[in-house]
């Protein structure tokens, strides 16, 4: 796989990849479950000071299901160009 990566992407440290993947994951999750998240925000038990942290942490957990290789594959495709249209 490494051969297909740009050198600068190879240099990206795993930490950066993790951070970028987490940010992408959260962005997708909020996009997919936006309506449900709004509903949770208006639920009786929602406390602004603690519930937001719980929500973010809960959504973010899913990143652990992806291997480092998977994360890299997703993030490093960011700068990819389609070979044909």
């Amino acid at each position: 796989m490494s051969s297909s990566l740009e050198p600068q992407q190879q240099q990206k440290s795993q930490k950066q990849i993790d951070a970028k993947f987490t940010s992408y994951y959260l962005q997708r999750a909020t996009q997919e479950f936006g309506e449900a998240l709004d509903a949770v925000r208006s639920a009786d038990d929602f406390k602004p000071d603690s519930s937001i942290a719980v929500l973010i942490s809960a959504l973010q957990q899913g990143t652990g299901m992806f291997s480092e290789e998977d994360k890299r594959a997703v993030i490093c495709s960011e700068g990819a160009v389609r070979s044909s249209k």
Binding site: M1, S4, S77, G79, A80, V81, R82, S83, S84
Partner: peptide
């Protein structure tokens, strides 16, 4: 596989 963006893992 042929049309995938470069850099995507297709193994």
């Amino acid at each position: 596989c042929v049309e995938a963006p470069k850099g995507v893992s297709l193994e």
